[in-house]
Amino acid sequence: MAAKKKRATNVQNDSWVVVAADSVIDTHSSDSDPAFVRLRNPSTDAASLYMLSAGDKQLFEVKAFEEDFHSWFVGQTVQRDGRLLFVTPMDPLYLILPYLSKAGKEGKFQPVNQIVMDEDFPACSRLLSCTRSLASLLHIAEEKEMGSLKFHRYSHEKTMIWLQKKVERTVVALKKKNISVGEGVKSTTYIRVKSESDHHEEDYLRYAHGLISEYISEDLSKALLSHLQLPELTSPKETEPPSKKRKLSDKPVEAGEDYTKLNSTDFARKPPKKMTAAQKTLSKVDKTGMKTMMSFFSPKVKAEKK
C-alpha cells in the first residue's frame, strides 16, 4: 500500500480527456488562446478552476466526471487518470454576484469595474469582458447612468427573481431529461426514471434549487429556498449516514475543494477512495479545480460548510 501511494504521487499527470463546448476551440476570430483560470467559487468562497475563451468573451465551468478504477486508452497510449472533464458555458453573473452583493452593503451606486476586484483572484476583472456580463447586470442590480458612466447597486429582490427564473429553467430541463429527483435518489445512484408522473413538483423544485445552490452563497441559497416557498429540510447528511451503496463518492472531492494549489501538483491522482479510508485520505486528496460530475446528481444541502 505504501509503495502504491508513493508511486501514485510520483506519477505526473500530463494528459487530460475533455468534452468541451465547440466554442472553446473556436479561436479563429481571436489571436489569443483560451485559458484555465482560477476564480473565487461563489459557493465555497475558495478557488475553483474555470476557463475563459479566447479574448475573454465567454466563461466556462470545468467539472470532472469520475468513477473509481478507470483509465483511458488514447490512440496508442494508456492514460492512468480515468477522469472525463466537461467544459461547459457558464453564466458569468454567478461569479460577479458575490462582489456586487458585498459592495451592496455600503448602499452606494458604484462603477462595476471598481466592484469586481479581488486581490486573491486578479483575473476576476476579466469576467466583465464576457459578452453577457454587462448587459445582464440588470438582473441583479439597479442601474444609474450619469453621462456616459454607469453605476450599479446590488438588488436582493431582483437577484431573487433572477434566481427563481434559473430554477424554473432547470426544472424544465430536468423534466425533459427524465432525471430522477425523488427522495430515494440521494441514497442510491442516479437512475433514469421511465415515468415521471409520480414526482411532485416540489421534488423538481428542490432538486433544481440544489443545482443552482452550487453557484451561490449559502445565505443566498437559504433566501432562495424561502423565496420559492420551500420549507427548509434537515440535512440528509444528518438524517442518513453517507451511503455505502454509492460507489461514486464525491466526498473527497468536496473536501478537496480548496483549489488553491493549482500548479504542477494539480491534477494529481486521488488516492483510492473507499468510504472507510475516506477520512484518512482527506488530507491527501487532490486539489484540482474541478468538482465531481456527480455533484449534480444530488442536490446539496450545505450543512458542512461553516
Binding site: 466526471f65 468513477e67 453564466d91 434559473k166 432547470t170 430541463a173 443545482l211 460530475m293
Partner: peptide, 19 residues
C-alpha cells in the same frame, strides 16, 4: 454513469443560459 454524464451539458445550459 458515462451515459448520464453526457446529459450534463444540457442541464448546464439550463442553469447557465440567459433568462
Amino acid at each position: 454513469m458515462i451515459v448520464m454524464a453526457m446529459d450534463w451539458p444540457e442541464l448546464a445550459d439550463a442553469i447557465h443560459g440567459p433568462v
